[in-house]
Design a protein around this nucleic acid. Structure first.
Lengths: 212, 212
DNA sequence: GTCTATACACTGATAGAC
DNA sequence: GTCTATCAGTGTATAGAC
């Protein structure tokens, strides 16, 4: 990755580190590799970020920052539930198509170091000014209102939310399996498959919760 | 982990390695840690398995071996589609409740080393005498038969399969997120949440594909 | 701010005694 | 088969010149 003119060395390092950490994880990443790809000396990494761990945490938080505002806007939007689900699935898939490595990266690092999860998350939410509990409460209210009105089947909000997230995120983390086993290891077929899911998934969800 | 009497050192090493690799991944695992937990010397690891990589591959393949036969039996069973889905979800959740670390482990290692995926998978399937293409074809046939009979909505078999797998596997790999954000970081709540999904998920799927 | 040189710890792996 | 001793390589991190 080459540094653009109006980019400081500090932020250039962050971009390169982002790229390497995302593919190889914390343990698999070598400071030497980041230095080489950034075209600088290894010592400079420590000058700017002191330790590998600190550099990693910066990258990790950055991975969230990009799509948190978009997701938040979608969740708290004042539109009917079915429209919201359609918009959410469409948005989420579009973001992940552009950042396909992020889900597997986040999942691995969270599972690897579950002790710090709460802490990391808290700081991420604070940085992004997100109040998750509030977001969930609003969404929960909207869902249960539809349940009571008899517009959708009786379903626990958390279960529905996890279902939606599962259907959106899993196809990206399981890319090697899906592509390798179901799609003859064909990259184009995988891309098409994912593109089709933008419609398939929201139809699937809405069909599942609709009253028959 | 202590070695039982009727267990060879060789297989004992494999058990310990399984445990460590599963939690920490290939990069994060230290041969020293495996040796310590196995109560033996580091050199013995190399005596039995030559390299870390070879030991890892043995463990990786073993991770599949346990539930492949069960899954296979479920998929090729000669029962109605809805019953098959219910049985599959129930079985899959039960297996993953007992082996919750396996999905995140497999996903991470497959994403880390996608070049070898096809190769590793091929050998795993050969070892387990599984013919995936055949399994998929049979399942595909059963699904499309139901579509034509008008018993379920029109849906591409691969999309349905990925939907089912997403709903079964994702809640385990995303445990830190689900537990941390939606369930107040309460382990018991998470366990209950997962237990409830055995019913919720198959109802969700069947509702989604049923004709209204 | 950026570089060179280097300290220091640790890792995977091997050789060889028993 | 199991151990001790040891190696070469690499990793993060620091000190100090410029």
């Amino acid at each position: 990755m080459s540094k653009s003119k109006n980019e400081t060395t500090e932020s250039h390092i962050l971009n390169v580190a982002h790229e390497v950490f995302l593919k190889k994880g914390l343990d698999g990443t070598r400071m030497q590799e980041i230095a080489d790809k950034a075209g600088i000396n290894k010592s400079l990494l420590h000058y700017y970020y002191r330790t590998k761990q600190k550099l990693f945490e910066k990258v990790f938080k950055l991975a969230f920052k990009h799509f948190f505002p978009v997701v938040k806007a979608n969740i708290i939007a004042d539109i009917p539930l079915f429209e919201k689900i359609e918009a959410f699935v469409e948005t989420y898939y579009s973001i992940l198509q552009k950042n396909p490595y992020i889900p597997a990266f986040v999942i691995h690092e969270l599972n690897r170091n579950s002790a710090n999860v709460a802490e990391i998350f808290k700081s991420i939410f604070q940085d992004n000014n997100m109040e998750v509990e509030l977001m969930f409460d609003e969404l929960d209210e909207q869902i249960q209102k539809e349940v009571k009105k008899g517009n959708i089947i009786a379903i626990e909000s958390r279960q529905l939310i996890v279902n939606i997230l599962s259907l959106c995120i899993f196809p990206f983390v399981a890319k090697p399996i899906i592509k390798g086993i179901l799609l003859e290891n064909d990259e184009l077929k995988y891309k098409t498959f994912i593109e089709e899911r933008k419609k398939v998934v929201s139809q699937f969800i809405i069909s599942a919760i609709s009253i028959r």
